[in-house]
């Protein structure tokens, strides 16, 4: 029994991990706490729904189109709302702005598609039995997409020119600027790649459980917890934190009931913030010294 819950948790955690990785990229490069990430997430799911169910262009083009538009949305948010804010502004301003963007987009979606849950993929899923564990096809896809994207991101960050740029800017923004690195390009990269990851997670989640306009906030809150839990300054930690959070939530469901999931999630956030603000895998550094 426990293995089934762990596997379910791993698959749910894979989605948290993708979303958290995107959030972490954006946060580290731009210092924006991007709650509107949730709006990108919701938009991606609804765009997929729009293209896949309302037109007849086929599944693959619909997915590509949804991902592209969601990435564009994320980039536009940065261009029009975050980038114009002056440097050194109190962090309160981008945070409230991102809430504003989130509220507007999600309610536009709710106006257009209604507040109810929409189903993307009706019917019973094919399942596989691996030892004592039953895995649905979608869960298998979720896990493999996560593994692929995680590896790809790690390799890109480590070895590519753009990855080095992102790491440099997130490590020390002022120094990177002084050395003449292109900060604008780093922002663009972070927002597009980060939004892409969130959009991928959203599409996978929509395939499994359908969508409602408020799915994005729940996903972003989980991603925030995952990012802080894993460690803010380490990119990979956000993804690992997401997977761990998924497993913990699943085990909580096993031991008590699903009702206490969010209580446990946020209790973890509080405990980590108070006792280990650098996160599980974070370097020992006081937050004030960033």
């Amino acid at each position: 029994m426990i293995w089934q819950y762990i596997v379910n948790g791993l698959c749910a955690g894979a989605l948290f991990g993708l979303t958290a990785l995107g959030l972490s990229l954006i946060y580290n490069v731009t210092n924006v706490f991007h709650f509107a990430h949730g709006a990108v997430y919701t938009s991606a799911a609804y765009l997929l729904f729009l293209f896949a169910c309302k037109t007849s262009i086929g599944a693959a083009p619909a997915t590509i189109l949804a991902l592209t538009l969601a990435i564009l949305l994320g980039v536009l948010m940065d261009r029009f709302f975050y980038a114009p804010l002056p440097a050194g502004v109190r962090r309160t301003v981008p945070i409230i702005t991102s809430f504003g963007i989130y509220i507007v987009i999600v309610n536009l979606i709710a106006l257009g598609f209604g507040n109810d849950t929409q189903i993307l993929h009706p019917g019973v899923e094919k399942t596989f039995e691996i030892g004592p564990v039953i895995v649905t096809r979608i869960q298998a896809i979720q896990a493999s997409v996560f593994a692929l994207l995680f590896l790809l991101t790690a390799l890109l960050l480590k070895f590519s020119r753009y990855g080095r740029l992102i790491r440099a800017v997130s490590d020390n923004r002022k120094l990177a600027e002084a050395l003449g690195l292109d900060i604008k390009k780093a922002r663009l990269l972070a927002f597009s790649y980060g939004s892409g990851l969130a959009a991928a997670a959203a599409c996978l989640s929509a395939l499994e459980t359908g969508m409602d306009p408020y799915m994005g906030l729940a996903a972003t809150l989980s991603a925030v917890v995952a990012m802080i839990f894993g460690g803010v300054r380490v990119f990979a930690a956000a993804a690992v934190g997401g997977v761990m959070l998924g497993v913990i939530q699943s085990l909580v469901t096993w031991q008590t009931s699903a009702r206490w999931q969010s209580a446990v999630t946020f209790a973890i956030l509080l405990v980590v913030l108070i006792f280990r603000p650098q996160g599980l895998f974070g370097a020992k550094k006081r937050l004030e010294e960033q």
Binding site: F266, L270, L273, I274, P277
Partner: peptide, 25 residues
């Protein structure tokens, strides 16, 4: 008090969600 800006906001967010969950459950 130990947390600044973003982290303070996050702590209050965690608290809000935690208490809401308690009201609910």
């Amino acid at each position: 008090l130990r947390l600044k800006d973003d982290y303070f906001m996050l702590a209050t967010l965690a608290f809000q969600s935690l208490v809401f969950s308690i009201f609910y459950n």
